[in-house]
Design a protein around this nucleic acid. Structure first.
Lengths: 206, 206
DNA sequence: AATGTTGTGTACCATTTGGTATGAAAAATA
DNA sequence: TATTTTTCATACCAAATGGTACACAACATT
C-alpha cells in the first residue's frame, strides 16, 4: 500500500502514474461533485480498475481528499501568489482577478471544486463536506491574517475589521464560483471583481 | 393523475396533503441536493410511499422542479419584496439583508436550494442543473430590469451598467449562500452585505 | 531458476438506486 | 348494494452503487 513512487520498489510495479490518475479523478469530482461522481466514472477516467484505485488511494472519500489536496497545491493556483502581493489592495485585486480568470477557464470544469465538491450532499459525503468547509475557513483565515499584517504596516486603516473584510472577499470569490459554473465568462467575472473592489477601504493608488 | 385538490373528487381520496408533502421534499432536496437525496429519503420525509409519490408528482426530477417552484413562490421569500423597494439602493440593501437573514435562518437548511440543489452533479441531474441556471439568470434579469428603471427615473447615474451591477449583486448573494451553508451566522452575513453595499454607485442617502 | 512481494483483471458481493406491477381499500355514483 | 374510479401498500424489477476475493502477472532478491 505504498502511495509514494519509491525508487527501489519491490514487487510488481504500478502500470499507471498515481499523480496523473489523481488529476483525472479531480476532474471528475470537480465536474460532478462527490455524490454525483460514481466509482465507475472515476476509475474509467483514471484509466484503471477498482482494485487498483482502492489499493492506491484507500476509498472514494480518501480519493476525494487527496484530489483536493492536489488541487490546493497545483502550480496554476491563484490563491498563494495573491497572498504574496505587496499591498492589501493588490492582494484583493489579484485574488479576485485570479478567481475570475481561473474559474471561468474552460480547460477544466468551471468554478471551484473546494466550493462545489460537496455543498448540499448526502450523509455519505458529510465527512468531505466538513473537510471542505474547514479548508474554506483556512483560506479566509489566511486572508484575514494578511489584512491584519497590512493594518500593522499601515497599509490598511486601523478602523478596518480584517475579519469582515476577509469574509467579504471570500464571499465574492465564492459567488464568482457559482457564476462561473453557471456559464459566466471571464470578462463578466472581471466586471464583477472590479465592482467588488470598489468596496475596498484602501484606494487603488496604494 | 390529478395533482390539484379538486372539490368533488371521485375515487379514493388522497391520504396526504400534496402541498405539505412537497414542502417536506423541498427540505430534503435543500439539504442534500438532487444527487444526494434518494427516493427513500424523500418518501420517508414526505410520509408516503413511492407509488403515491410517482402518481402525485411524476418522478424524482419533476418532484424537484415542483419543489423549486414552491420555493420560489413561498410567502417568506425575500426576493420579490426587495424588487419592489422604491430606490435602487434600497432594492440592493433589502435583497442583501434579506439574503443574509433568510439563508442563515436555521428553521430550514442553510443557503439557497436554487443555488445548491444541483451545482456540480451527475448526468442524471443535468436537466435540473440547467433549469436552476435558468432560474438564477431570470432573477438576475429582473434585478437588471429594476436597475434600468432606476436609471430612467434618475435614481441611478446613466454611467452605471445595470447588467454588471445586477450580476454583482447576484454574485454576492450567491456567495452569501455558500457562506451560510458553511455555518456563517446572520450577523456575519449582514457585515458582508454592508461591505458589498459600499460598492453601490448611489449613496445611502437615496 | 525459485521465492517473496506487490499490482492487475475478472468476477463477484450485499445493498441501494430510481421506478412499477398488482391487488386490496376507500370513496362517489348508480 | 353493485359498480366505477382512484389511491394505497406490498412486493418486486433491472441496473447501478461502493467495495472485495482471488487467481494471475510482473518485478526484485536470493
Amino acid at each position: 500500500m505504498s502511495t509514494a513512487n519509491c525508487a527501489t520498489a519491490i514487487g510488481r510495479p504500478r502500470a499507471f502514474d498515481v499523480q496523473v490518475a489523481l488529476e483525472k479523478a479531480l476532474e471528475v469530482f470537480w465536474e460532478k461533485g462527490f455524490d454525483g461522481a460514481s466509482l465507475s466514472d472515476l476509475t474509467s477516467a483514471m484509466g484503471i480498475n477498482k482494485p487498483s484505485m482502492y489499493s492506491a488511494f484507500g476509498n472514494k472519500e480518501q480519493l476525494f481528499l487527496k484530489a483536493i489536496e492536489f488541487y490546493k497545491n497545483r502550480p496554476c493556483g491563484f490563491f498563494k501568489p495573491a497572498l504574496g502581493q505587496p499591498t492589501a489592495y493588490k492582494v484583493a485585486e489579484s485574488m479576485l482577478m485570479g478567481a475570475a480568470k481561473s474559474m471561468a477557464d474552460n480547460s477544466h470544469p468551471q468554478g471551484c471544486v473546494m466550493i462545489q465538491g460537496a455543498l448540499s450532499c448526502s450523509e455519505a459525503a458529510a465527512g468531505v463536506k466538513e473537510e471542505l468547509i474547514k479548508y474554506r475557513q483556512q483560506s479566509e483565515d489566511q486572508i484575514k491574517d494578511r489584512f491584519e499584517l497590512a493594518k500593522a504596516q499601515g497599509d490598511l486603516p486601523e478602523s478596518v475589521d480584517a475579519c469582515n473584510l476577509a469574509r467579504y472577499l471570500n464571499t465574492v470569490m465564492q459567488g464568482i464560483s457559482i457564476q462561473a459554473s453557471s456559464g459566466a465568462t471571464e470578462e463578466q467575472l472581471i466586471d464583477v471583481a472590479n465592482l467588488a473592489l470598489a468596496s475596498f477601504p484602501a484606494g487603488k493608488g496604494q
